[in-house]
Deep mutational scan, measured.
Amino acid sequence: RKEMTAACTPRRRIINLTSVLSLQEEINEQGHEVLREMLHNHSFVGCVNPQWALAQHQTKLYLLNTTKLSEELFYQILIYDFANFGVLRLSEPAPLFDLAMLALDSPESGWTEEDGPKEGLAEYIVEFLKKKAEMLADYFSLEIDEEGNLIGLPLLIDNYVPPLEGLPIFILRLATEVNWDEEKECFESLSKECAMFYSIRKQYISEESTLSGQQSEVPGSIPNSWKWTVEHIVYKALRSHILPPKHFTEDGNILQLANLPDLYKVFERC
């Protein structure tokens, strides 16, 4: 597991931080080997919608929660590849102030007048994250320049770009939802926020969305749709870069829909 690298990086740093090793061990302890084997050997059937997909393993048909699986995938990559990410360069710098204002204007932020003026909160978020810029760049390849612009994001899987519609809320939550006081809790909560931002979430995906850094293989055609990215990038990574937690067998994120021999018997009677 320590050699797990989802995106190509030129050289690998050895990380011996106790906090990170502890988080890696927790993933191992909570892992479910049968689910790992199923995901490793599954045959992708198709997307139901951005949140759900169908896959077959041996004779069984499964309904998989793409949102939760991708979130767990990105969390584990962030923990196992800690401080070893490439950088996704933004085509132009994104001012943190503008991103924070967009987030505060969104109902998702939960902002009320009692929280104070949005401009003041946005300025605080910019200054707060600028103070964390060195650590964010060093460990997470999340790059913020001296003017308070976001200029780079971590490359977690080759050819995958997170849904940038979720970027404003991500920046807001970096400042408000991460435990910045304790090292282990900081790395864990920061990785979880980043994983949620990178995950496939239906509120940020339309039929026209593209999450891939590449064009489709047909010359002159439109960019790959999110469905292509889910199948050929995300579920491909799920084959080798995730140890599913045991609770996925109990919380409805992986559901067995049918045993195909039983279905064949039904059709034979028709």
Rank of each mutant, 00 (worst) to 15 (best):
R1E: 15
K2Y: 14
E3Y: 14
M4I: 12
T5F: 14
T5C: 14
A6M: 13
A7Y: 14
A7M: 12
C8Q: 11
C8A: 10
I15H: 06
I15N: 13
N16P: 11
S22Q: 09
L23T: 14
Q24L: 13
I27D: 15
I27T: 05
G31N: 11
G31S: 11
G31C: 13
L35S: 04
E37V: 11
L39H: 10
H40Q: 12
N41M: 09
N41C: 07
S43M: 10
S43I: 10
F44E: 01
V45S: 12
G46I: 02
G46C: 03
C47P: 13
C47G: 10
V48K: 13
V48N: 13
V48S: 11
V48R: 13
N49V: 11
A53C: 09
L54K: 02
L54S: 09
Q56R: 04
H57S: 05
H57Q: 12
T59F: 12
Y62P: 00
L64Y: 09
K68M: 09
Y75F: 07
I77Q: 14
I77T: 12
F82C: 01
V87G: 08
R89Y: 15
L90V: 04
L90G: 00
L90K: 00
S91A: 06
S91H: 10
E92K: 05
A94W: 10
A94H: 03
D98Q: 08
A100L: 02
A100H: 00
L102A: 08
L104Q: 01
D105S: 11
S106N: 05
S106T: 04
E108D: 04
S109R: 01
E113V: 02
G116T: 14
E119R: 04
G120R: 15
L121D: 01
L121E: 01
E127V: 08
K132Q: 04
E134L: 04
S141W: 02
I144K: 01
E146S: 03
G148T: 04
L150E: 01
L150H: 01
G152K: 04
L153T: 02
L156W: 00
L156E: 00
D158L: 14
V161F: 02
V161W: 03
P162E: 00
P163V: 08
L164R: 04
E165S: 05
L167R: 00
F170E: 00
R173S: 15
R173C: 15
L174E: 00
A175T: 14
A175W: 12
T176I: 06
N179A: 03
D181L: 08
E183I: 03
C186P: 01
F187C: 09
F187Q: 06
F187I: 04
F187W: 05
S189L: 06
S189M: 02
S189Q: 02
L190V: 03
S199W: 00
I200W: 07
Q203K: 08
I205T: 11
S206W: 07
T210F: 04
T210I: 05
G213F: 08
Q215H: 08
S216R: 08
V218G: 06
I222Y: 09
P223M: 05
W226V: 08
W228F: 08
H232Q: 11
I233L: 09
Y235D: 06
L238K: 02
R239I: 11
H241W: 12
I242N: 12
H247A: 09
T249I: 09
E250N: 08
N253R: 08
Q256T: 07
L260R: 05
P261M: 10
P261S: 13
D262F: 13
V266S: 15
R269S: 08
R269K: 05
